[in-house]
Amino acid sequence: MSDIVKTDYIYQDGMYKRYKVVGISLPVENDKLQDIHNENTRQSICKDKHFKALNKSNELYTLIYKNEEGNLYHGKEQGPEKLIIYEECGSNNPVLFLMSINDFISSKQEYMSAKNSEYVDIVCVVMILLLFLVVPIYLLFTI
């Protein structure tokens, strides 16, 4: 099912709000989380190896761990299924959010790759500029 949700893709909900998927966190037992933390500490790579994500449905934060390969993990007691870690596009709020994969799939639709999103934004700006420059010039010469 995680093949359905892709990292670095933009998704859109029914209200046309857009969200960028940052990662997919796998549920593991607490001793596995402790092993990840211990390995990160041993290698002195603790910086950016764990972070909090907010679950909007219950307003609770969940601690997400990242191993040396960049995979994300959370404790099974926080959720027995994969969790989607995402951020709101266009928001000045630096908070990361999470949602179960089933809830995410049922409430969001794939919009486009994040890389394509930047391209589309540039194309839209160029089209608007052309519209405001070319149309007045055309009207000036046809009247």
Rank of each mutant, 00 (worst) to 15 (best):
E59M: 13
L83K: 10
M99Y: 06
A114F: 09
N55F: 02
G79C: 01
L63C: 13
S44Y: 12
A53V: 01
R42F: 06
E118K: 14
A53H: 05
L54F: 07
A53Y: 07
E88I: 08
D121E: 07
Q34N: 13
K49W: 09
S57A: 14
N71R: 10
S107Y: 05
D35K: 15
N116G: 09
Y119W: 03
E77A: 13
E77K: 13
V125W: 12
L83V: 00
L129D: 02
K115W: 09
L96N: 09
S117C: 14
Q109Y: 14
K82C: 07
S107D: 05
F51T: 01
S117T: 07
S44D: 12
H37W: 06
Y65E: 05
N102Y: 08
L96A: 09
G70Q: 01
A114T: 01
S57T: 10
L63Q: 14
E110S: 08
Y65G: 04
H37M: 05
I128T: 13
L131W: 05
L96F: 12
H74Q: 06
N116R: 13
P80C: 12
V125Q: 13
D103N: 13
I45C: 15
K76I: 05
K115T: 10
M127G: 11
L72F: 03
L83Y: 10
K76N: 05
C124I: 12
Y86H: 01
E88F: 09
K108N: 14
F104M: 07
T41V: 11
C89S: 04
L129N: 03
E68H: 14
L131E: 02
I36D: 03
L54E: 02
S106D: 08
L129S: 11
M112V: 01
S91V: 00
D48G: 08
I85Q: 02
N102C: 09
S113W: 01
C89Q: 11
Y73M: 01
F97S: 00
L60A: 12
L72D: 00
L98V: 04
T41A: 15
P80R: 15
S100A: 01
Y111C: 11
K47L: 15
Y86K: 00
K82Q: 08
N116F: 04
L83W: 07
Q78I: 02
Y111L: 06
Q109C: 12
S107E: 05
Y86E: 02
K76L: 06
Y86L: 00
C124P: 11
T41Q: 15
N40M: 00
I84W: 05
S100I: 02
Y65C: 04
